[in-house]
Design a protein around this nucleic acid. Structure first.
Length: 732
RNA sequence: GCGCGGUUAGCUCAGUUGGUAGAGCAACUCAUUUACACUGAGAAGGUCGGGGGUUCAAGUCCCUCACCGCGCACCA
């Protein structure tokens, strides 16, 4: 160790001075790329591959604490496997995040007093593109600062031209296989964002609203939404309901309704709950999922009542053009005047479906959209999970996956937004038939009418669902044959619905194999009080800020120690601070070890005294234990054990004990130097060496920095040194 | 309504196939020129949510109740 290093070691560990330099060292070495590792003889050419595809962060802002957690966990796995000699690949990426990003951008426009509806689609696209590319760079810098050892040379963006092309090809293939159809179906319509949404993009909000009982001819019907009732001309009841047995299915009844006399038709349907309300209801097939299904069963007419902006159509008569949010009280007034209002129940509690971004009430609408037939695809996914080809950590998420896949409904992949991958399709202007048209060459529909280009874009999950394949170069199979199926998909537990099933489905469909063998789901990162971080609460923790104060290694430990998969974590500054102390503890212990092993060569066949021998065995046992736990994804326990061993055994016991032995026999004191000093020195050096390696995946910066000071010969970067214990199970 | 998870030390959480309760942080006592105050030593702290059952033995398995959290579904 030269004087410069010695001088550095005398001061406390300084992450600020260290991290950027070390990261550059790693990146310049090329070892993030498994090909380079093989080329340089670090990894065997026939080594078993280990692959993680990074969940591509949305390129619309900086990283949050959840990102820091996933980077940490995935980097731990990656570094561990690289050190074990696997052909280890971690592919980074960035997601254009369709609707999400467009909303972020629309908020920005709103602040500037602009609106997307006043812009050409081309201008809007260009602006969002520039915005995204800028943010993508920030995001990548943040990932580097967290120490991610991912292969940047393979980085992918979901709007890369080849990815766009592949995604469109998938649409074409599914269309030709009959798995995608164009259909008039009920969609979730957000009137603010002017787009349809999938089920996962809506939420329920509990509301207490008045519940109205209305006289409908001889019946009393109940509704929470009188403003949709203008076109109701079917009155439905259960076929076994004794109260209404005098009315026959298909019977016509003339009655007075909101805007005058109408003829209603009686429909008997078993879906009616006889216990609810009066057991009779009228239906609005255009604006309600259940009503839509009833009307499909009985082949009833459907009519649109509310337009795409949320205003009443001419069917509403004098109420035409009024926004539904304002129409209700007016309509109730009129019903009251006409004597049709029976009573109002003021405390009716029910759930209202709202847009997950703006909380606007979702207006179900019948819309011509592209849908994916989920049943056949979901069945294959279920089979893959049931046969154990995909394992979940924690295990109970398997059940959630199965539930979701069993109850899946057809997936609407059309979005009426600009920011996304265009759907390569044509629609007939007359009969509305849809065609996949990759080459933009179709002109006429089979009905003879003209075709126009579909202006919609894909739901972002349509492209990110193919991510394990796209990130590895699909449709080119060169890399896929090596690295796919990937080993682990590590992501937030909230993505068990949104993302995981779609990746499973697409990989099975396109490549007939699972997308990943293991799914590791982490919980949310909450604030120190355990409350969910949110901008409105002002309790959002910026991980990079914590890195600035305490260092990356400290943050990583704080995120991983004791954090079991699937469980939420409370992240406090004190927690991070504690691990900053740990990094410094490693640093100081190193100073002691290096000071006391100067000019000392560790024997290849070390001879320990009795207690040192016991300590040697103890650490070796620990190494075997943690290796097993690493293979079981128990990083929460491995990190804790290493922390505990380093601090309370290595530092508190072994170092303290060595003081007596070494001080009792000063260096260079010739014959007086007893073998207990050698034993102590050997143990100090050997254990530090081993602990640095074992700690490296968790605290990569401080361990790498210290490694550079270790006097070993033939030394490489610590990141590619051999992990200090073999796996019990070679297949892990 | 259906389902899932949780309830263990003041706080945050571990606890593997049942075998005398663990860690971190906080608090307490003492020490401290000696790698490290970003420190050390020590002590303290829990009828493992309630009740019942299986067992030689239950934090762990079964039943039941309560409370907290989450997800899904329906709601005319």
């Amino acid at each position: 160790m030269d004087d410069k290093l010695r001088e550095k070691l005398l001061k406390p560990y300084d992450p600020k001075e260290t991290e950027e330099r070390i990261y550059k060292l790693w990146e310049d070495s090329g070892f993030f790329n498994p090909d380079v590792c093989i080329e340089k003889g670090i990894t065997e050419a026939n080594a078993k591959p280990f692959t993680i595809i990074m969940p591509p962060p949305n390129a619309n802002g900086r990283l949050h604490a959840g990102h820091a957690l996933f980077v940490t966990l995935e980097d731990i796995m990656t570094r561990y496997h690289r050190m074990k000699g696997d052909r280890t690949l971690w592919v980074p990426g960035a997601d254009h995040a369709g609707f999400e990003t467009q909303i972020v951008y629309e908020r920005k426009l709103e602040k500037e007093g602009r609106s997307r509806f006043e812009m050409t689609p081309e201008d809007l696209y260009k602006e969002i593109y520039d915005f995204t590319i800028t943010n993508k760079k920030f995001m990548e810098d943040d990932i580097r600062r967290l120490g991610a050892s991912c292969d940047w040379s393979r980085e992918k963006f979901t709007l890369d031209p080849d990815i766009v092309k592949t995604v469109q090809n998938t649409f074409d293939k599914m269309f030709n296989d009959g798995l995608i159809y164009r259909g008039d179906r009920i969609v979730n319509w957000c009137a603010k964002h002017q787009t349809s949404l999938s089920e996962v993009e809506t939420e329920f909000e509990e509301r207490t609203e008045p519940f109205y009982y209305l006289q409908y001819g001889p019946f009393v019907i109940s509704t929470s939404r009188p403003e949709t009732k203008f076109g109701d001309k079917y009155v439905v009841m259960h076929p076994k309901d004794e109260r209404y047995k005098e009315y026959k299915d298909g019977q016509k009844i003339d009655l007075e309704w909101i805007n005058g006399p109408i003829t209603a038709t009686v429909i008997k349907d078993e879906s009616i709950d006889m216990e609810f309300g009066t057991g009779v209801m009228t239906i609005t097939p255009w604006h309600d999922q259940v009503d839509f299904e009833i009307s499909e069963r009985h082949n009833l007419e459907k009519e649109q009542i509310i337009d795409w902006k949320g205003k009443l159509l001419p069917i509403a008569g004098e109420f035409t053009g009024i926004h539904i949010s304002k129409a209700r009280t007016k309509i109730i007034e009129k019903l009251k005047e006409k004597g049709l209002l029976v009573k109002i129940d003021e405390s009716y509690k029910h759930n209202v479906k709202v847009c997950f971004k703006c909380n606007t009430v979702i207006e179900p609408q019948i819309k011509d959209q592209w849908f994916i037939k989920m049943r056949p695809l979901a069945d294959k996914a279920l089979e893959a999970v049931e046969s154990g080809k995909i394992k979940f950590y924690p295990e109970n998420y398997k059940k959630i996956f199965q539930y979701w896949m069993t109850n899946t409904i057809d997936w609407n992949i059309s979005r009426q937004i600009v920011w996304g991958i265009p759907i390569p399709a044509k629609i007939c202007i007359t009969c509305k038939k849809g065609y996949s048209d990759l080459k933009d060459e179709l002109k006429k529909c089979t009905c003879g009418s003209e075709l126009i280009k579909d202006t919609d874009t894909f739901d972002t999950w349509f492209s990110s669902g193919q991510w394990t394949l796209l990130a590895l170069g699909y449709p080119d199979t060169k890399e896929l044959d090596i690295y796919h199926p990937t080993d682990v998909m590590e992501t937030g537990r909230d993505l068990i619905f949104k993302w995981i099933p779609r990746m499973v489905i697409f990989a099975l469909y396109l490549r007939n194999e699972v997308a990943f063998r293991n799914v590791y789901l982490h919980g949310l990162v909450n604030d120190e009080k355990g409350e969910k971080m949110s901008k409105s609460k002002g309790n959002v923790v910026n991980p990079i800020e914590l890195v600035d104060i305490f260092g990356t290694d400290a943050l990583r430990m704080a995120l991983v120690v004791g954090n079991t998969p699937g469980t939420d974590l409370s992240l406090s500054r004190d927690r991070v601070k504690g691990y900053k102390n740990f990094a410094n503890k490693i640093w100081n212990a190193t100073r002691f070890v290096l000071d006391n092993t100067k000019n000392f060569t560790v024997s290849e066949t070390p001879k320990y005294d009795e207690e040192d021998n016991k300590s040697d065995e103890e650490l070796k046992t620990l190494m075997e234990e943690i290796t097993k736990e690493m293979d079981e994804y128990k990083f929460y326990i491995v990190s804790e054990k290493l922390y505990h061993y380093f601090w309370h055994t290595f530092a508190d016991i072994i170092i303290e004990r060595s003081k007596k032995k070494i001080l009792a026999s000063p260096v260079g004191s010739g014959p007086r130097e007893n073998k207990n000093a050698d034993s102590a020195k050997t143990l100090l050096y050997t254990q530090l060496n081993m602990l640095l390696k074992a700690l490296h995946p968790f605290t990569p910066f401080v361990t790498e920095e210290i490694w550079s000071m270790m006097p070993a010969t033939n030394k490489n970067l610590l990141m590619v040194e051999k992990w200090p214990a073999p796996s019990a199970d070679k297949t892990c």
